[in-house]
Amino acid sequence: MASEALFIVQKTPPVDDRPLWDVVIGLYGNQALLLAHHLNVFELLADGPRSSSDICEALKIRERPADAILTTATSLGFLSLKDGFYALTLISETYLLAKSPHYFGHFWDLIIENDQFHSFASLKKAILMDSPQSYGKSNIYHTHLEQAEVLKKFTTGMHSISITGAFVWPDAIDLSSHRVMIDIAGTSPAEAIGAALKLPNLKVFFLDFPQVCELAQPYIDQYGLTDRIETVGMNIWCDRWPTGDLHFFSNIFHEWPMEKCHFLTAKSFNSLESGGRIVIHEVLYNDEKTGPFFPAAYSMMMMAWTEGRQYSGKELATMLKEIGFEDIEVHKVFGYYSIVTGRKP
């Protein structure tokens, strides 16, 4: 038996072991990007390329760690290296400079500050107990002010990842006949802002808990949409929604098990005017549920934070059909996101 094993191990296996290395090395490599952001590498390069020693001096770190971070960032396309000078690339200029309207950094900050939720121990607990690890966080805040500050970081983080795609999905389908959009529990009013700016005749109601609405208002004011986007503080599960002909859910269904998604969809169907439209904005699995990797890993994030998971376009379309929606369509929109939409007869 031992000699047989010895013989087998000497033969080259039919596949190499890179996928196994990728699992481990990804854990370290991706942290390098978060560190580069946290240490302000990208902001430092906003005024132009710099040498490694310049960067070391500015960040007050030594050459070896700088080399590890900068090389990883370069290998992943976030930096370029030419003649010994590191520079921003299109992706880092667009998303990792705070002055950019597409700034993604607040979301990275949120992930860095809450790194306990993506630890092995935390995810193991979430998997074994089928229970999000983030619930009841308010118990750990000593004051209302402290809780409000943390809540603000979450809404800022959500705004950071939503504002760019918010200007894309309204172009995916013809929404010109719609007059009143209801943005349900968006956390950030980014999607409401995108829709209002793209569709000049649209009035938008942004529904969320009163504390979230309070944080949403400055964004609405900043875009000069105070008259067109109205926040409505409520509990979406039991309160009556304002009348509208366009219901929009972004990153909502993946927070909940299918039974609760059904409830929200039925409530939408019940509340929409005839001819009204539902739009569900999510990252979707393929219909075979074999991937891709991004929604699969996103479901792991949802394990840590929520009761939900990602769904496939087919699952969401079936749900819409079961509830009575017609003309159901699935469209790719921006980045990893898609919309699933249907019309109430």
Binding site: G136, K137, V150, M158, F209, W237, N251, W256, M302
Partner: peptide, 18 residues
């Protein structure tokens, strides 16, 4: 993406279902 209601005890997310 973050269920703020349950995280921060802002309100119930239990719909009335029998």
């Amino acid at each position: 993406m973050f269920n703020l209601g349950s995280m921060f005890n802002l309100g119930s997310s239990n719909p009335v279902i029998g």
